Computed example of a mutant assay.
Amino acid sequence: MRFRLLFFLLIGTGSLQAQLNNTMFEQRNEVVKSDSNTLGLTLRTLAFNKNNEYFSKIADGYTLFGYQINPSLYYQPTSNTRFDIGVYVQKDFGNDDYSEIQPTFTFSHTFGDSKLVIGTLEGSLSHRLIEPLYDFERVMVNRLENGLQFTVNNNWIFLDTWIDWQNMLYVGEDDQEEVTGGLSMNYILMDKDFKISIPLQMVVTHVGGQIDSSPRPLQTYVNSAVGLMLDFHNGREGFVTGARVDGYYTGYKDFSTDQLRPFEDGSGVMLNATIFTKMHLDIMASYWKGNEFLTIQGGKLYPSESSTFKNPFHIEEQRELLILRFMHNLKLADGLVLSGRFEPYFDLLNNRFEFSHALYLNYSTDFKLLKNARK
């Protein structure tokens, strides 16, 4: 009860937020109108260290420590078309080999505020999904997405729809094709003294096929979320520069021909409150209550189904968490950001306190190598 009271006192004082500020992890292939016939180089890197001190039967404790490098050549033949060709490399410390080496290819075409992407997507945290629908750690363990994407981004709407083709099926294989698609939208209703916006999100996974020899059934799972977000801006001098409050109702539904997971449907409620400070320190409080809620790609703390190695069949029909997040982003140079996070949480139903801490170094930049490359 004391923890519930603390959380709602925070909300009462206006110290509230919503989804995490992960903009430093977003990767966009910017198509610049004035850069026709330009050849250039893009460099993206991420160094990461995240330690989860978890001991529950729902989520494992472990450490992620390593770096990612994604250099690519880009060529912009017209004012609204861009090609990127590169290589993605990931090194996990303590592993003598590279954990992943993959070629990347992206075709981007813009028209107005919209963009069509084919190939390696502007994926992962760039989708701006809330954590119950998309696990933050996927940026470190499963970052690349390949397929088709359409985005709209202007002063009133952020819209991202995509198809990520995860496993290709060939004739006669004892396997199944796997594809995940999604929708992430945030529509701004008003932006005056404060901002009101409506987020709508969905993730759908389909596992199946018609040309396989696998005996496993067709599987289709859906996660969804709808919410309301309020942003407040402090126009006066002071330590607090702004605040955000948002809440979401989330859902899970199993449309499979045979039910393989423990629940056919479920739901959850997430409330977030954040204050932003002039020291670039964000303080966020979150409350999560789930009822038979399962995830497709969501964070491991939220579902009623265990993802642990030693307790894979453990089930908790009800989940209720209070989470605090202290996030500091330090800009070292243009495109270079050092981020530190400390994220304790309290499991209200199991009377358990656990935490994680992390350090991230993001660097992203473009270099123009040759203008009028066709001449």
Rank of each mutant, 00 (worst) to 15 (best):
A273R: 00
D135Q: 12
L183H: 02
L39N: 03
V337E: 10
T277P: 03
I188A: 12
I69C: 02
D282Q: 11
F342A: 13
L230F: 14
F232Q: 05
M202N: 15
E26A: 06
V240H: 07
Q27S: 12
M24K: 05
V269K: 01
A333E: 08
Y74Q: 07
P77D: 07
S256Q: 06
Y302M: 08
G268Q: 06
M24P: 04
D258I: 09
E264L: 12
N153T: 13
Q76A: 06
G12Q: 01
G86Y: 01
A273M: 07
I101T: 15
T205E: 10
F255L: 15
F93D: 13
E131M: 05
L73W: 02
N22Q: 11
T308P: 03
Q27P: 01
V337F: 04
N155T: 10
P103S: 14
R261P: 01
A18R: 01
F326C: 06
G181S: 14
D175Q: 11
L218E: 15
T13V: 05
N49V: 07
Y170R: 09
I296E: 09
N372D: 14
L349Q: 12
M270Q: 12
N155G: 08
F263L: 09
E53G: 06
H109W: 10
S214W: 00
I188N: 10
N311V: 04
L116R: 00
I163T: 10
S114D: 13
A225C: 08
R319M: 13
S124V: 02
K375N: 08
A273H: 01
P132H: 06
T106Y: 01
N146H: 08
K50N: 11
D135K: 09
F263R: 07
T78H: 07
T365V: 14
H109G: 06
Q318K: 15
E131I: 03
R236D: 14
F7P: 03
E354A: 05
E354W: 00
E53R: 14
R2H: 09
N21D: 15
D254V: 05
N95E: 14
I11T: 05
T78P: 03
E173Y: 01
R82F: 04
F105V: 13
L218D: 14
H109N: 14
S34D: 14
L148W: 05
F158M: 12
N155C: 03
L133T: 08
E131Y: 00
N311P: 00
Q149C: 11
G299S: 13
H357D: 11
S213M: 06
F232L: 09
P262D: 13
N223Q: 08
V32Y: 03
F309Y: 11
F309I: 15
T220K: 10
T257I: 08
T13P: 00
P344K: 11
K278H: 04
L260W: 02
K57C: 08
I69E: 08
F7E: 13
G119H: 09
K310P: 00
R352D: 12
Q102A: 13
L230R: 06
T241R: 11
D164W: 02
W162A: 14
Q210M: 07
T120F: 03
